[in-house]
Amino acid sequence: MADWKSEVEEVVFPGKICVPYSWTVGSTLSRWYVQLRDDGEIWANRCPSCGTVYVPPKIKCIKCYKDMNDWVKLPGTGTIETFTVVNKERPGLDPKKPPFVYAVIKMDGADTGMVHLIGGVEPEKVKVGMRVAPVLEKERDGHITDIKHFKPIA
């Protein structure tokens, strides 16, 4: 198999799969996004059985598989549990020009973390354990990017 390339030109077709998508947000996350968009608030929901508080909210508790109808408003603040400074450009994916920071933020009042961007600070100054608060976009369309980023607070 290896030597065919010496006899025949290698031909490669470029291609792309072009299919449009629309994702139904559903009962739980619709409520969450509307609260974020209209009221600028970050909510979580709590398992009626084990009490675990999830943000982003869950349709079912991942431990108990119970429905989650118990909503709690979070202060929005949290602590950076881990982060990365993205240096290498990834065309079409980067939400902003590198270097920028992704982090898992352990949210106050919840048992889980949120993944988001860290801004308003030089990337090299970001540390694990740093306290952060959300910075919301003024014009919000009901998506995760309604939170512009989380920024360090004193």
Binding site: T24, G26, S27
Partner: peptide, 27 residues
């Protein structure tokens, strides 16, 4: 044709929940 009331994960949960009920069991 359009289950706009439920996300993909919610549609899955609906079938799983009904299946567990039909079998009278839990996860």
């Amino acid at each position: 044709s359009h289950r706009l009331d439920a996300s993909g994960v919610e549609v899955i949960a609906e079938a799983v929940t009904r299946c567990l009920d039909d079998a009278q069991t839990t996860l």
